[in-house]
Design a protein around this nucleic acid. Structure first.
Lengths: 240, 240
DNA sequence: GCAAAAGTGTTGACTGTACACCCATGT
DNA sequence: ACATGGGTGTACAGTCAACACTTTTGC
């Protein structure tokens, strides 16, 4: 180990995690309120700094654990890296953004003593009914949601938003919440999902979940498939 | 500008560019031979270090210009970030990898005095008929090619691999070279392409390019469309 | 003429969508 | 009974893959 020449510029590298979930039919993101300057009281994506011995995955885990979020995070993937000058007034900061999907099993609204966290409805943040985000985190969040919307089209990751025995109605609600538009005919939606081998596994009992009335629906768990062939596309995609 | 606390760990951040092109019907990648330790004489992806004032895009431009590659790089996008410990023996190194598509217009095989560069056929590198790559660049290259293969399915980026007036046969060859498999019936391929509005723009004259025999083909340029609806899928995609 | 490359036509199978209809439950 | 959510059937339209066929060139 020779080491880098001392003349090489260096940067502070951090990981930021966009934790998405579906709550009462709407897409939510977990944010933390900043307790320190700069941009104190603005809300930011949870993150952690990377030390020389850390893998990026370890940084993601640390950032999530610090929030008191239960360990069963449904899915984590790298989103992109943001490293242009000026994005952090303190200096040269490079952020590797990650995207996480979690089922909404009663995550704590407030995690601990020194962190104030909250789920915010994505739509409210976009429409200005939420707080202003710190640094370039609004941009990262937008990129994350667009990625999530696209991923539901051609992967089975929608199942990562619901706790494990779920119904086709639950899955339909995930698509509607994440996309922000109606996925269309429920009957056809159910057929597409059931015709993709390995997407869903029928669990024994006919469940009696869901709200009040109506015929009880069948219960499923996520199957081994990861990709959707054919995809489930959003209505009226921009052609060309 | 308060600056970061001095105790925060810092890293050397660099950009690496996977420059792909199609040459004599095969997918090629541009590599540079290392002139210094560590891993001297191994081949690596071209790159550059990021200084505090650099945007990541500027680093990509610098890395490309340094090679003598003509400025008309067809397409550049961020691929992913590789920052785990141990990937560079000199210390904590974070690499932001980019993916570039360039038309093969006689790029110089050897760019300048202090750099030895060469296009290598991707297949040869995979099959062991090429040099060993430095650090984790083999991994980055594999990720890049998989991304490129997927992108041809649902974007119009195949046009970025060919110089501007091109034929449907040229485009077909791009798909075959990047995918490594035959895209299927040429007639159907041509129909798909021509039925996507904005993919191609018919250029006036019937060209007389292409090799020797056969009916001369029509000439096209890339249109304004960026996405393919419907996609052009690789044969026999892994279902599920 | 013949082979090669480009392009058009046609057919049959498949798929997605819309919509009508049946099932099971709570009130 | 009836409203509500779950699930099945069906028919029409659109799309795609396979393959036959025509056009235009070089040899």
């Amino acid at each position: 180990m020779t080491g880098f020449p001392a003349a090489l510029p260096s940067a502070v590298v951090s990981v930021e995690v966009v934790i998405l979930t579906v709550r009462s039919g709407r897409l939510h993101v977990l944010l933390a309120e900043r307790r320190e300057e700069p941009q104190r009281h603005r809300w930011e994506l949870p993150g952690s700094y990377q030390s020389a011995g850390d893998t990026l995955a370890a940084c993601v885990d640390r950032a999530i654990e610090r929030l008191g979020v239960s360990p069963d995070v449904g899915h984590v993937e790298q989103l992109g890296t943001y490293g242009d000058p000026g994005r952090d007034p303190r200096g040269h900061a490079v952020s590797v953004a990650y995207l996480a999907f979690v089922p909404h099993v009663s995550l704590p609204d407030d995690a601990g003593a020194d962190v104030v966290t909250r789920f915010w409805a994505f739509e409210d943040l976009i429409d200005g009914y939420g707080p202003q985000l710190a640094f370039d985190h609004q941009r990262i969040l937008s990129d994350a949601v667009e990625r999530a919307r696209a991923k539901l089209e051609y992967t089975t990751l929608a199942t990562r938003f619901v706790p494990d025995p779920f119904t086709l109605g639950d899955l339909y609600d995930v698509y509607r919440a994440v996309w922000g538009v109606d996925p269309g005919d429920k009957a056809n939606f159910a057929r597409k999902v059931k015709n993709t081998p390995g997407f869903l596994v029928r669990i024994g009992g006919t469940g009696e979940k869901r709200n009040g009335r109506g015929r009880p629906s069948m219960l499923y768990t996520a199957g081994p498939a990861t990709n959707l062939h054919p995809p489930i596309l959003r209505p009226s995609p921009t052609p060309g």
